[in-house]
Design a protein around this nucleic acid. Structure first.
Lengths: 104, 104
DNA sequence: CTCACGTGCAATGATCGAGTTGCACATGAG
DNA sequence: CTCATGTGCAACTCGATCATTGCACGTGAG
């Protein structure tokens, strides 16, 4: 389960991709529309959207002849909760080890 | 602020690095010790530790002549909370837009 | 209807990062 | 003391991926 996190992080790691995702969090948009706003080609935008979609961070909907993409908060929320759980586990375990060391 | 997240994601994105971090979450260890456990060279381990340290995901302590590294839950927790906040913002904003669209 | 506009696929270039190897240094264990 | 062990620095290879360009196709706006 924790292994499934790496792809999501990889999707979020790129600055441009993160910017696109943040932009879609403000309002849905098509790939062509995004290409006009960002200083990169439409194809680059499309590829980023594919990556984001593969990690379920964006969803796509057909509006007329356009494909409108929007950011999905749910997945991000899942990741957040999992991180909290992991962080807590670490703290407990390491505190325990430290206690053992001081008991010598 | 949201821009400061990208480096952390980049640090967490690599499978090997994530595995090292998880390992350090179970118990502290030196770079050489990790190199014995993982199928990669010590130098590779060291580089991963540098990245993790740069994102404040691990801390280092001198024990005798060894450098002992341990995972830090705090930073991960910060990231988790920020992600929750962002996800919530998206949901609100997009729900608002959807409401407007249906009001037509 | 028609053409502008949005999309899809393919090949290529360029940059970045993971991993290796080799060597040098130092310091604590025995 | 001495040598094994842990660490540090540098150069190199190789693969992934970010981005570009060019072309073709379909469909809805006007």
């Amino acid at each position: 389960m924790t292994a499934s996190l790496a792809p999501v992080f990889a999707a979020l790691a790129d600055d441009t991709r993160w910017a696109i995702l943040a932009r879609l969090g403000e309002a849905p948009a098509s790939a062509s529309a995004l290409a006009r706003e960002f200083p990169i080609s439409r194809q680059a935008i499309v590829k980023h959207l594919e990556v984001l979609k593969a990690s379920a961070l964006v969803e796509t909907e057909q509006r007329g002849r356009e494909l409108v993409h929007r950011a999905v908060g749910g997945r991000l929320n899942d990741v957040a909760h999992e991180l909290e759980r992991i962080a807590e586990t670490w703290e407990h375990r390491l505190a325990h080890i430290k206690r053992l060391a001081e008991a010598e």
